[in-house]
């Protein structure tokens, strides 16, 4: 799943979720400064009103490397 906040001109970076590795602890969602994430059926998901600013805090605190900010080209 590739998500990104395209409207804000941050096209070069995207948020990537890997549900295969997500163990559903909810740390990313709990500490997201924009409250942009939610847990659905034990897996992380980006909320519909995409508030992600690609700060990468979720990536740093995800124990399972299941969410990260990536350069879109890759």
């Amino acid at each position: 799943m590739l998500c990104g906040n395209y409207e804000k001109g941050l096209m070069e970076k995207i948020l990537v979720l890997n549900p295969d590795w997500c163990k559903g602890c909810g740390i990313c969602a709990a500490f997201c400064p924009k409250d942009a994430l939610e847990m659905i059926q034990g897996k992380v998901s980006l909320k519909e009103n995409n508030q992600c600013i690609l700060c990468g805090l979720c990536e740093q605190r995800c124990p399972d490397y299941a969410i990260f900010v990536s350069d879109s080209g890759k």
Binding site: V16, N18, D20, W21, K23, G24, C25, G26, I27, E59, P63, D64, Y65, A66, F68, V69, S70, K74
Partner: peptide, 22 residues
């Protein structure tokens, strides 16, 4: 699917790891 950092520094074929959720 993994970050550049994880790809560079970890043996991704051994992931996900065995540690508990959270």
């Amino acid at each position: 699917k993994t970050s550049d950092l994880v790809f560079r520094t970890m043996r991704i074929d051994h992931l996900p790891h065995i540690w508990c959720p959270g």
